[in-house]
Design a protein around this nucleic acid. Structure first.
Length: 559
RNA sequence: GCCCCCAUCGUCUAGGGGACUAGGACACCGGCUUUUCAAGCCGGCGACACGGGUUCGAAUCCCGUUGGGGGCGCCA
């Protein structure tokens, strides 16, 4: 049992689970499962200013949605808890005390402003600053006095002054020179540990054997190893994962959403489609933040971005796991896809279930190169995933989708109807696409919105030939004796043949009348499902709008 | 600026000195199918960043250049 593999995922509760975090969690999960070990979840909530209420719940929900269940951690407990760093403060205090007593750490009293000034003075650009360690360390009395004077008191770790070599299972041995290493802070002035300190203590306490984390942590690792050596703790096996980038090569981050919305808003304002004041109103934040955001100086809250995106009629790029859920991706597809970002089994296989990944995974097959996140390929995977899933699976996935979109027009439908829609929509790429394709069938007639361009193209163009067809079809359909999809197909095809028209010339006007758009399942199936009454009512409704003499509105665009 | 990491089709990758006229997937292009959007089927385009070595032989090993990424916080 001595070599039981124990891995962990240790997020801080600042929002939804990010795609990069999800990949890190997945790899840790897979390694533990592959070796019959334990996967631990720990909440790193040591930054009181960054913790966001409700974020932890979202994080756990996202992990569960992906199917990454943890053996120890929040909600499940375990022998090495508590699994919240905020509940482990005595442990860090004890370790810090020991380091202070042994002269391996010391107090420091600079304010942030003083440190900023020192950094600026250090180098031309202020980079590469190293804290000037005092010849003799301040005493407990000095620390007390500083506190009494209202100065900040932190504890810094005395780096041993030697080079450090990080043994990394992916990158090999990476040596960082002593000159690069700084006496970093281990206890903040609020008494809480920094990440570097807490992570070392906790990983040891929780018997973590393997640490898989993003490559952005590589340069921190000497600090961690030094700390482990000073505290007499073992060094776990490290594996620094390549980073996931956007298609443009920039780091994939939540800023991407800000960027997209900011660009769209500028275009809309330039085009006169929206004005500054209205945009601010939609965003619902304070004017100062909004102004800063427009100048790329700040980020907007997620819900503000969502509201703006809706008004601007743009899709937000998916960044968080929750975004993919909301866009109608299957969790097993997301897992499959991100597993292939930086890992491959070495053959041509690309499709895996979570269990299959757990069986095939190995540290040795993780690559070194950063990967760009290709949404097109994910979409293709999702299309295959939906096409290849058992009907019951898609039904369950739809129910989950409705949990995120309770207002979906499809949400109230029974399983049998939903199953029918799934059949009719074979080939859709996402659950959202299925919703968009079928939604219009299940909204009230009054709520139908007409695609203006489609109306022009298929109804009004060429001396309103489309309107004529629609008028005729209204009568034909009213008299149809068999309102099944088969019967309707006969009637409609028959009409097209008689009048020497392609089916499209007949189907599209009907489709627009009954759905408002050019997209729906087979036209026969669509109106069969809609029923005669609604179909005729919707055709009448559109005809009334398009024929002023019938007393309809001037333009379909106002609908 | 300094330090670290990386480098095969547009993208994710296979490849670990001869099996490479470099394989797969997505995207793209062309065709077929077609009542819309998708899906599907067939075919095609397309890469070893560059320059030096080592070697009988290099995509594979070494060095340099260039390019990309990361780090340089009382954030994690």
């Amino acid at each position: 049992m001595a070599d039981l593999v124990r891995t962990r995922f240790a997020p801080s509760p600042t929002g939804y689970l990010h795609i990069g975090g999800a990949r890190t969690a997945l790899f840790n999960y897979l390694l533990a499962r592959r070796h019959g070990g334990r996967f631990v979840l720990r909440i790193e909530d040591t930054d009181q200013t960054r913790n966001i209420a409700g974020a932890e719940g979202k994080l756990l929900e996202d992990l569960r949605w992906l199917g990454l269940d943890w053996d120890e951690g929040p909600e499940v407990g375990g022998p090495f808890g508590p699994y919240y760093q905020s509940q482990r403060l005595e442990r860090y205090e004890a370790c810090a005390r020991r380091l202070l007593e042994e002269g391996r750490a010391y107090y420091a009293f600079e304010t942030r402003e003083e440190l900023d000034a020192m950094r600026k003075a250090a180098g031309g650009s202020g980079k590469g600053f190293r804290y000037p360690r005092p010849a003799s360390f301040p005493s407990e009395a000095d620390a007390r006095r500083a506190r009494d004077e209202g100065r900040p008191v932190v504890v810094r770790f005395k780096m041993p002054g030697c080079d450090f070599t990080v043994p990394d299972r992916i990158l090999g041995e990476v040596t960082i020179g002593a000159d690069e290493l700084d006496d970093f802070v281990i206890v903040k002035s609020d008494g809480w540990p920094t990440y570097h300190f807490a992570v070392v203590v906790d990983d040891a306490d929780m018997r973590i054997t393997h640490v898989l984390r993003g490559q952005e942590h590589l340069m921190n690792t000497p600090n961690h190893i030094a700390l482990q050596q000073a505290l007499g703790l073992p060094t776990p096996i490290y594996a620094h994962l390549p980073i996931i980038l956007n298609m443009d090569g920039s780091k994939m981050s939540k800023r991407e959403k800000d960027k997209v919305v900011r660009g769209a808003l500028r275009g809309a304002i330039d085009a006169g489609r929206i004005d500054e004041a209205r945009a601010l109103d939609v965003a619902g934040c304070d004017a100062e933040t909004f102004a800063a955001w427009r100048k790329k100086k700040a980020q907007l809250p997620a819900d503000a971005l969502r509201r703006l995106a809706r008004v601007l009629e743009i899709e937000l790029p998916e960044i968080d796991i929750h975004d993919f859920r909301a866009s109608g991706y299957l969790p097993e597809v997301v897992v499959n896809f991100i597993a292939l970002l930086g890992w491959s089994a070495g053959d041509d296989r690309e499709k895996y279930t979570l269990a299959e990944l757990a069986a095939a995974f190995s540290l040795e097959r993780i690559g070194k190169t950063n990967a760009r996140f290709d949404r097109d390929k994910l979409l293709a995977f999702n299309t295959d995933g939906i096409a290849g899933a058992a009907p019951g699976r898609i039904l369950a996935a739809l129910r989950d989708y409705f949990a995120v979109h309770p207002d979906s027009p499809l949400a109230p439908l029974d399983d049998a109807t939903l199953a029918r829609l799934v059949e009719l929509c074979a080939g859709v790429r996402t659950l959202r696409q299925l919703e968009q394709k079928c939604g219009a069938m299940f909204v009230d007639d009054e709520a139908l919105r007409y695609d203006e361009a489609a109306v022009r193209k298929f109804l009004l163009k060429g001396e309103a030939a489309g309107v004529g067809v629609l008028r005729n079809m209204r009568d034909v359909l009213a008299k149809a004796s068999d309102w099944s999809s088969g019967g309707l197909e006969q009637v409609i095809r028959g009409y097209a043949r008689e009048h020497g028209l392609g089916l499209g010339k007949v189907a599209q006007p009907i489709r627009i009348a009954v759905t408002g758009t050019t997209v729906s399942p087979s036209i026969f199936e669509t109106i069969a499902l809609l029923g005669r009454e609604k179909t005729l009512a919707r055709i009448d409704r559109l005809l009334a709008r398009l024929e002023p003499d019938a007393g309809g509105a001037q333009s379909a665009a106002t609908a």
